[in-house]
Simulated assay, not measured.
Amino acid sequence: MTKARTAQINVDATPYYHCISRCVRRSFLCGYDNEQGKNFEHRRAWIEERLLELAQVFCIDVCAYAIMSNHYHVVLHINTDSGNALAPIDVAERWLTFHQGPVLIQRFIEGGSTVRSRNRTLL
């Protein structure tokens, strides 16, 4: 049975987490797949680059990682000091680094009105 992340992660207990992501249906993540006759080794560098980029933006320290042919392991440290030092605008800007974001968030970044401030003017 699945659990919500809030039930799985407790930074007070430990800020370190071992995460695993696996491919399904005998798919290859990296390396040479004999059945398909294809080489997926080019993905290894892309995965490493993306992992380190995400970690830098989201206040996560990558302690160790291993990228295998059909899965990868990552040991992460949640950097709460860096995260707590961020202002709400910083959090929104970092999130928008990888996501387009809804119009409300885009307005917040641009310094425009939000739903709450517009509702006050209507009253």
Rank of each mutant, 00 (worst) to 15 (best):
P88R: 13
Q8Y: 01
N39K: 07
V103T: 12
C23G: 03
D90I: 12
L96R: 15
L54I: 10
A64F: 02
T80K: 04
E48Q: 15
L52F: 15
N79T: 14
K3P: 00
R120K: 13
N79R: 14
C23Y: 00
D81G: 12
N70I: 07
L29H: 08
T14F: 01
I20W: 02
V74Q: 11
C30S: 11
L86P: 10
S27F: 03
R107S: 10
E49P: 03
G111P: 07
G31W: 05
N79C: 13
S82W: 06
Y72G: 04
V91A: 13
M68W: 11
A7T: 00
F108W: 10
V11R: 07
G83V: 10
C19N: 04
D90K: 13
I105T: 13
R22K: 11
V75T: 15
I109D: 09
T114N: 04
C59G: 03
R94I: 04
N119M: 09
Y65E: 02
D33Q: 09
N34S: 12
K38V: 05
Y32D: 10
F98D: 06
V74A: 14
R50N: 09
E53S: 08
A7N: 04
P15Y: 03
V75S: 10
L52I: 11
S69C: 08
I78W: 12
P102T: 11
A92G: 13
N84Y: 09
N70E: 05
S69N: 08
C23Q: 02
A92M: 11
